[in-house]
């Protein structure tokens, strides 16, 4: 792999306290993700995919170990610093879109930009650009309830993109969509990866979806079982 490393995970463990019992969800995990990769993270339910994704996206702290993204050690950042870091570097896409139901598509996409110093006019321009990239420029004024699942997910992707993050993390982005719509969304992600150079880490249960990725990772019981690259078809 020639690309420079973007995400580097070293000896990371994650434990949850459940009552008196401590559950180790991730165990001494090592992983490198290169700049510009499109990773599909697969594995049975409960194997720790979401947990790992949350650590990479800076939503949670590991119990032990080191996580570097770019030049930054994010495992030791405070909550406040981590929030700032996420705003600048990571875009999130969820299975159920997680849009604000009261806000129009463009207001939803604008949300991450509210944390920047961009003027209202600049924000408008960037929002329009992001909606164009996902092919929804004509739905800007629609509320999430007025959009189909595929359209809502596109809006979510536009929201993840709009602040121009280095890394996109997607947790089962097509889990709630039919085959055809899923293929459209995956094609969009692939284009973002190939044409816009976005590094993507995507959790999926769907082997077909995983084929869009440049590398597939398999998890089981909190560990990566096949760290070697499996080239996509």
């Amino acid at each position: 792999m020639s690309a420079p490393t973007l995400v580097s995970i070293r000896n990371v463990s994650k434990r949850y306290q459940r009552g008196k019992q401590s559950v180790e969800v991730l165990q001494n995990l090592d992983l490198d993700i290169g700049q510009g990769e499109f990773i599909a993270l697969m594995g049975p339910s409960g194997s720790g995919k979401t947990t790992l994704l949350n650590l990479i996206g800076g939503l949670d702290h590991p119990s032990t170990g080191e996580i570097r993204v770019g030049s930054e050690r994010i495992d030791s950042l405070s909550d406040g610093k981590l929030a700032k870091w996420r705003a600048r570097h990571v875009g999130f896409v969820f299975q159920f879109y997680n849009l604000m139901p009261m806000l129009s598509a463009e207001r939803n996409v604008e949300l991450p930009l509210l944390l920047t110093s961009l003027s209202s006019a600049q924000r408008k321009r960037n929002v329009a650009a992001a909606l164009t990239v996902v092919g929804l420029a004509d739905r800007a004024r629609h509320k999430p309830s007025e959009l189909s699942g595929g359209q809502a997910q596109r809006v979510a992707i536009a929201r993840a993109l709009v602040a121009d993050p280095t890394l996109l993390v997607c947790d089962e982005p097509t889990g709630d969509l039919d085959r055809h719509t899923a293929d459209e969304i995956l094609g969009l992600l692939q284009a973002l990866n190939r044409e816009h150079g976005k590094t993507i880490v995507m959790v999926t249960h769907d082997p077909k979806a995983a084929e869009y990725a440049s590398r597939q990772l398999h998890m089981d019981k909190g560990a990566l079982i096949d760290a070697g690259a499996i080239n996509a078809a």
């Binding site: 870091w85 997680n98 991450p112």
Partner: peptide, 14 residues
């Protein structure tokens, strides 16, 4: 969940 999404996007606790 909506508030959690805002935090995910980088909205600070404050």
């Amino acid at each position: 969940p909506e508030l959690a999404v805002l935090k995910t996007l980088g909205f600070s606790n404050g």
